[in-house]
Design a protein around this nucleic acid. Structure first.
Lengths: 340, 340
DNA sequence: CTGAAAGCGCTTACAG
DNA sequence: CTGAAAGCGCTTACAG
């Protein structure tokens, strides 16, 4: 690309670079009408576009934020990203999305690169295993917000679902439909990912509140790739669960694959509720009952909180947790148990 | 964030900035062992991270590419983006994704911003309505590749599906299963989006080759939001189509919604084949027969061609079209017509 | 009302 | 083997 710089424009318009710069930044306060016009003409005829890199260097702001999602495969990540993008567009910001793939090493790498690229702030779905880095950014008052998850002992604003409530809604619905043997399957919990822990604990509490027994062989937290095996096991029990709560969309999909493969009937042979509303839920056969997250609102909030931090509002009275309400989407993958 | 610059490191290590810079860029040719160590120590103790913005300004390369997708809602866009990201990671590049939302105005805006941000190259799913801009980049030998679509009269490398073949595969499969009345529904064609045109023309040619009549009321190209109406109309004909080819994933989804809403049986009441393999195809009831694009390969190729252009290979012997083969994924949303 | 000068944090010939 | 100097393309006090 040919480079036309501010100097070229200045020369063409026969003014100084300073004046052109003032013009570009709309500081017209004392600018002569003819000067303005000459500059405008020069810009037009030369097809000048300011170099944002140069501007960023000087202004120490790139008008760009970084977003590091834990796993782009989750529908939640994609939807939230779109909401963030909307806010960015409105504020004249751009965003760079990175996918940590649930890998703390990748996450660390991305954080470092993005900081080196001088992004003005970061939204992170934390893997939870880079405490030093998180802490360092916190110490430096670097604009940062967590999304979906919080990290114990790192007091950074986190935008999250009422996760306990989410599984409670699922359990309650099943209880109302007269299910007693209710299982739960989530993705791996070994890294203490907060929403997963909370969803499991919400499930247990709800069972307890409804006086249902909590059986260890009805709950499991494994990698997506092992969901099939885990289901095999759980449904092979002498008294298998009659309903299963899927901890997120990926688990739900694995369950649906299992159901298909084994020619089970939904909900007669197995009732299912997924946390996360999947795209095909409404027109699946049967339509899938889910607990939806307000993804759009959550992404918007994350971006707004970050923008406030970038603009120096909100440094002091840091509010930590922003919790959002889940919504039960009643469809047909759960039916009245007594009918069967 | 506190800023530690190369000067701080130089001071701490008691060498010049030049030497530190050499070190950073691994030009150790003549560097004394003790110098190296002193610099390394300084970097460590200060926690220095180079400022990429400053480097970019000097080097006139941001090691970043832009990707402008026509519509992020298409599954194709997401998958292709992930493939591009892989290549970027391998080459030490980053990418900024923008969603033009099928809107030429947004597309123009994003192209301009990305150029101003000095990205080293661009992968565009062109809306087709910014010919001047495309042409200008071409004239400037700016590294650019088109994906999914080409633009008539703008000779820029384009990575595309064998679109005619894709609809041909669909029609052939239906013909083999003894279907005669075959319709096709695609998203709007008014902007002459090349893959849509090609898919419709492939459909027509295939019908012709199999001696089937081509009926105008069996083909329609409308916005996603009007697919329902269009189906209503088509299936309300006195001799309605018995099978429909969906031009892409969004159309497929609309068709499935329609089928659900009207309690149609798949494939007994209506057979369906979608172009684009959707995530839920395999475990849907019935599993959906589709024509898949090699999304990963296509994204990879786009990124590789772009990298070559950025690295000055491939400017001369510009190859224009890279066409990829579609694959029929036989599942159960099409069955033997004679059986019914 | 406008311009000269310094500076953002790097890199890169070039000199020694 | 290392450093001084210029420069990438902007912006921003400050002077006049």
């Amino acid at each position: 690309m040919k480079s036309i710089t501010i100097s070229d424009v200045a020369a063409h318009a026969e003014v100084s670079k300073s004046t052109v710069s003032q013009f570009l930044n709309k500081r017209y306060d004392y600018m002569g009408e003819k000067t303005k016009q000459r500059i405008e003409m020069a810009i037009d005829t030369l097809g000048y576009q300011p170099n944002i890199v140069a501007r960023s260097l000087k202004q120490k702001s790139t008008k760009t934020i970084g977003v590091i999602v834990a796993n782009i495969l989750h529908n939640f990540s994609t939807e939230v990203s779109r909401a963030i993008e909307d806010v960015c567009n409105h504020s004249g910001f751009h965003m760079i999305i990175c996918n940590a793939d649930d890998d703390p090493v990748k996450e660390k790498h991305y954080i470092e690169i993005l900081l080196a690229k001088q992004v003005d702030g970061l939204i992170i779905f934390p893997t939870g295993n880079n405490r030093d880095l998180y802490q360092k950014m916190l110490d430096n008052q670097y604009p940062l917000v967590f999304l979906d998850r919080s990290v114990e002992g790192i007091p950074i604003s986190a935008i999250m679902l009422e996760n306990e409530k989410a599984s409670r809604l699922a359990v309650e619905h099943l209880v109302q439909k007269d299910y007693k043997r209710i299982g739960m399957l989530t993705t791996s919990i070994i890294h203490n990912i907060s929403p997963r822990l909370e969803r499991v604990s919400g499930y247990k509490k709800a069972l307890h509140d409804y006086g249902l027994p909590m059986r260890d062989d009805y709950v499991n937290s494994v990698e997506s790739s092992s969901v099939q095996d885990s289901l095999e096991e759980m449904l092979g029990l002498s008294e298998p669960p009659e309903a299963i709560v899927a901890g997120n969309d990926l688990v739900l999909i694995e369950i649906l694959k299992f159901v298909k493969r084994h020619h089970l009937r939904l909900p007669e042979d197995l009732a299912v509720i997924g946390i996360d509303d999947v795209s095909f839920a409404s027109f699946f056969t049967p339509p899938i009952t889910t607990v939806a997250q307000p993804t759009f609102k959550m992404g918007k909030m994350a971006a707004e909180v970050l923008m406030d931090k970038i603009n120096q509002k909100r440094i002091e009275d840091e509010r930590l947790d922003y919790r959002f309400e889940p919504t039960l989407m009643v469809r047909d993958s759960v039916d009245n148990k007594d009918v069967t």
